[in-house]
Nucleic acid binder design. Structure first.
Length: 602
RNA sequence: GCGCCUGUAGCUCAGCUGGAUAGAGCAACGGACUUCUAAUCCGUGGGCCGCAGGUUCGAAUCCUGCCAGGCGCGCCA
């Protein structure tokens, strides 16, 4: 309103002076209170073209603005300041009208009406279902879910998705690990493979399987138990590496084999049909059990997915094969040296990438292409993927692939989330999924609760590595800023409970309400909410909501200290009550966007 | 070697599609509860915004180079 009016004055001035176009007079909200409610640097920007000093221009603009009826109605004073800034001070009418408008917006203040297009698919977490979710996954879950809420609130059409990496060697190892624990529970001497999963949760899954199928697979697994030992020694020496590398330190090689997830198959379990069938069963069983656990855990964390998509299904349905075939036909893919390659260099990648290896096995990349083709065929027009920083090297090829599939660049948007460093007793805590050494999301939630965990995990920009001190999280849980924000909500709820019967929310014009700087600061903050939401959504930056929520809460707590609602003069009481209600709606919304609860009392 | 991310107060970090004297929380110190919840408020101290150039009326912000840390650079997933 004011901004538009100012722009109109600007345009009229430009017309008078014969300027080709009116300079855009951006009204900013200065950080410094002494710089007014609004400020504009426009005169400094136009000084050169106008060949006049910024302060002279500012003085003329000041007079022109004051001469405008509508501007004069809302503005207390206008000052020329500094090198040529124009500072505008609003009067009580402007504040009252702003509040009246915000009050009328109701519960959904700040929400943008839903748009049908583009249809957005937002994929995040997407892990191998072979171990507990750890804190890093928790960060992606919290970030992705908040982003989902933020995008939806700002009108986007978003579907969330969890890609289940239930295919490949890691899952085979997981299956053998469960099988081994199962066998052990029947006193069979079948150790968990060295490259397998050692965590206690594997025992629990095996126990669950035993409760379901009894001893059905014990006999089938016996060959693995008997034959394993002698083979193990030989396996360790060759390390499963296809070509011996003379001169390399044996210990270093062994270390590499252990750490390298991409090492060639090193399991020495016999390829006995019974064993294979048993392992397949335990893999499937374990996968289902883990997924069920994750679904429950994520739901408890406030994160619900619209769709869970299985990688294995891409292989079994033939989609993977079809897309590779299609790419070969269109010439985007080609055969070379027994392998099939995708020409990703045509879309900005450093080198072409293998789709089908020379042993006829498809790569993970090929499956991912099939997956993204599926997303496109389901009608999604924009695909957002949230990946860990350790996958960022994968971005160019995937961008290229989706561009090839969709025929237009920019369809895929990969958001790289940096990792979480866990500190314990001031030292970095190293984690390994297979050894079962890690801090799980469940442990973090146990230590500090869902609200604090979610608030904390999204409080920093996602492209910033996040240091999480476990001891601090435990010890200072009371001092987490989440309580500061929740407390603002609880305090307002207290006012709502205690307000005398018949108190109305009304802002009477000309009654001199909202005269204090505390009320005005709050109103200004509330007014910026919708632009903060838009900004946070566009920049995929939910942490801005965290910062805003803290600022709004701070403004409220100061207001609360200085301004009574109950017991104030009737005009003030009604106006402040209205103000409180709007603050509560916005605080509630911020917390909701973050997946944090908004308590009525604390 | 190449690519991506990061370097801001003692600590953890905002601010980065350029604006005035660079902010918050924690930690430290000193104050405020006969009033709607003191999980709060008020005050004090604390900074070559990694370094050096450049663009601009104006740079923490944009460009270049350098230094430091993290991650990545497979016919692994």
């Amino acid at each position: 309103m004011l901004a538009e009016r100012v722009q109109r004055v600007m345009a009229a001035w430009a017309a008078e002076e014969g300027w080709r176009e009116a300079p855009i007079c951006q009204l900013e909200r200065p950080a410094e209170e002494a710089h007014g409610d609004y400020a504009t640097p426009v005169c400094m920007q136009m000084a050169r073209a106008a060949r006049r000093s910024p302060r002279h221009l500012a003085e003329e603009l000041r007079l022109r603005l004051l001469a405008d009826k509508e501007v004069a109605r809302l503005v207390e004073s206008i000052e020329v300041a500094g090198p040529g800034f124009l500072n505008l001070y609003l009067n009580g009418t402007a504040y009252s009208e702003a509040m009246t408008e915000m009050l009328a917006q109701g519960e959904e203040i700040g929400r943008v009406p839903p748009r049908a297009h583009p249809r957005i698919n937002l994929e995040f977490v997407s892990v191998n279902p072979n171990g507990p979710l750890h804190v890093g996954h928790g960060r992606y879950a919290a970030y992705g879910d908040s982003l989902h809420r933020l995008l939806a609130f700002s009108g986007a059409n978003v579907t969330t998705e969890f890609y289940i990496n239930d295919f490949g060697r890691q899952m085979d190892r997981f299956g053998r690990s469960v099988a081994a624990r199962y066998a052990q529970s029947f006193d069979l001497d079948l150790p968990v493979p060295g490259d397998g999963y050692q965590g206690d949760y594997v025992n629990e899954i095996a126990a669950g399987a035993r409760a379901k199928v009894g001893d059905r697979y014990v006999a089938a697994l016996r060959p693995a138990a008997v034959e394993r030992r002698p083979a193990a020694a030989a396996g360790a020496e060759s390390g499963g590496a296809p070509s011996p590398r003379a001169g390399e330190d044996l210990a270093a090689m062994a270390e590499e084999v252990f750490e390298d997830e991409g090492a060639e198959e090193s399991s020495d379990w016999p390829q006995d049909p019974g064993v294979l069938e048993a392992v397949a069963f335990f893999k499937s069983w374990g996968c289902q059990a883990m997924l069920e656990g994750m679904r429950t855990e994520l739901a408890g964390f406030g994160v619900l997915f619209d769709c869970w998509f299985s990688e294995t299904a891409l292989h079994s349905s033939g989609r993977l094969e079809r897309v590779v075939q299609r790419l070969l036909e269109t010439g985007e893919a080609y055969r070379e040296g027994d392998a099939v390659w995708l020409r990703t260099t045509s879309r900005g990648d450093d080198k072409d990438r293998v789709l089908i290896r020379s042993n006829d096995q498809p790569t993970y990349f090929a499956a991912d292409i099939a997956y993204h083709e599926d997303k496109l065929e389901r009608g999604f027009e924009h695909l957002i993927n949230i990946w860990g920083a350790d996958h960022h090297g994968y971005v160019p090829r995937m961008n290229a692939a989706v561009e090839i599939l969709s025929g237009r660049p920019g369809t895929l948007e990969v958001i790289i989330g940096q990792l979480v460093n866990l500190l314990e007793e001031g030292a970095l805590k190293q984690m390994s999924t297979r050894r079962g050494e890690m801090v799980t999301l469940a442990e973090l939630i146990d230590a500090i609760g869902v609200d604090a965990a979610r608030f904390f995990l999204v409080s920093r920009s996602q492209d910033q590595t996040l240091d999480l001190d476990i001891d601090l999280a435990r010890r200072h849980s009371q001092e987490n800023p989440v309580y500061y924000v929740q407390y603002a909500h609880a305090r307002i709820s207290g006012i709502v409970r205690n307000v005398p019967e018949g108190t109305v929310t009304a802002i009477s014009e000309g009654s001199g309400v909202f005269a204090s700087p505390y009320e005005r600061a709050l109103i200004k903050r509330l007014e910026s909410f919708s632009s903060v939401v838009q900004d946070a959504a566009e920049r995929r930056a939910p942490h801005r909501i965290v910062a805003y929520a803290q600022e709004l809460s701070a403004d409220f707590h100061v207001f609360y200290k200085h301004c009574r609602v109950i017991g104030a003069e009737p005009d003030d009481a009604s106006a402040r009550f209205a103000l409180c209600l709007v603050v509560r709606r916005v605080v509630f919304r911020c917390l909701d966007l973050l997946g944090v609860s908004a308590p009525e009392s604390m």
